[in-house]
Design a protein around this nucleic acid. Sequence first.
DNA 1: TTAAAAAGTTAGACTATTCTAACAAATTAA
DNA 2: TTAATTTGTTAGAATAGTCTAACTTTTTAA
Lengths: 222, 222
Amino acid sequence: MDSLTEENYIKSIYALSLATGEVFVSELAKKLNIKQPSVNSMMKRLATKKVVAYAPYKGIRLTEKGKKEALSIIRRHRLAELFLVKVMELGWEEVHDIAEQLEHVDSKRFYSRMDEMLHFPKFDPHGEPIPDSNGKIYTQKRTSLSDLAEGLTATIAAVGEDEKSFLDHLNAKGLQIGDAVTLKKREPFDGSVTLQHKSKKEILLTHQVAERIWVEVTFTRS
Amino acid sequence: MDSLTEENYIKSIYALSLATGEVFVSELAKKLNIKQPSVNSMMKRLATKKVVAYAPYKGIRLTEKGKKEALSIIRRHRLAELFLVKVMELGWEEVHDIAEQLEHVDSKRFYSRMDEMLHFPKFDPHGEPIPDSNGKIYTQKRTSLSDLAEGLTATIAAVGEDEKSFLDHLNAKGLQIGDAVTLKKREPFDGSVTLQHKSKKEILLTHQVAERIWVEVTFTRS
DNA sequence: TTAAAAAGTTAGACTATTCTAACAAATTAA
DNA sequence: TTAATTTGTTAGAATAGTCTAACTTTTTAA
Ligand SMILES: [Mn+2]
Ligand SMILES: [Mn+2]
Ligand SMILES: [Mn+2]
Ligand SMILES: [Mn+2]
């Protein structure tokens, strides 16, 4: 129905619109590494297909149809990532690039079997929610490790990136989803944080890294 | 390196050339459901890329490079099919269409994990040999069930089609790879055969079906 | 409230694939 | 060995995606 190219546009529009609701041609062009005029013509095409609402010089919005398609692609992506980690035993840092390809596979059976084998999972290996087959997605407000108060203990719930280099960095630091960490100290100068980790080791993260880690507060200082 | 389209051409050229060695534009066009002039221009392109040797009005031949690529695509296809059957528990009749898509996934890790999980398998779910990672393929001369002498018992080794409709037909007849069958009778009029099957049932197959089933003779009449 | 800067558009061009129409070469049949 | 028939090629056009160059509109800053 949609081409692989169109699917990638739709997914990016969805990702960018999560915050603001509206997406600009320039943002989308930057995200997709494509020039603005190319994005402009694609928007005309997607508007014709009723996937986006688009008026010149105004922003881009996904229609209901567009949102549904975006969620379906995201579902396939995250299901694939989890399958690659749980069933095929690949590392969380190497699955994103493969899932970028698998998400375009057109086969209900392929995905429904994944879903069954994984027992209808709710989160992908990076802690991101997997939309259900009706497009419902679990959204919770999350706290960034860069905002956690000193002295609090929290559990790592998600990481906001699935780029290999970022995940390799977390692997090197020994951090995983589900780990409990206590924020020992935040440096006022550069925002870097020192964590107490279950491994007993102290871990130092820069602000750049800490702000991409989402946590759930588990214990409050008494 | 090669586009999905180019990969599909290469795979088809390989399949068609197995018998004769040379492939004609008309055959390839028919197989790919593409018009002759389109095939003609693609052959020029693949010739430039040194994947095929092609001279106007002569046939098409894959170069060594082209053969290597064909075997690599076939390897990915068959590994994917077996993975879908053994790991994901899909039926042998539903995996071909998915494998047509998975074979184009660009990821060594994805395929090497499949290979490991399946313990470096030699045959796909339809009995076709899986080329190894160096492109070596196991070719044995096979006997068609349509040529098996009356009274002989043989084991079903492979089926020469992976179209769903054909495999659905075999499912309906209760035939699987590995089953022992004894050829009870061949009708001279239409070439249809009656088999004695392990299920104790007698199975009647038309010539059209029997000629697509490959067997290994296990017992000879004394 | 002007003048830059940033964002968005149009026009025109290029590659990858594919098609139809028309013509040429090779093969087959009479 | 001519005349069909089949096969293969060229030429020209179309669609999906993308790009650069050249504007135009909006936004921001002075
Ligand atoms: Mn991902
Ligand atoms: Mn993810
Ligand atoms: Mn197949
Ligand atoms: Mn097969």
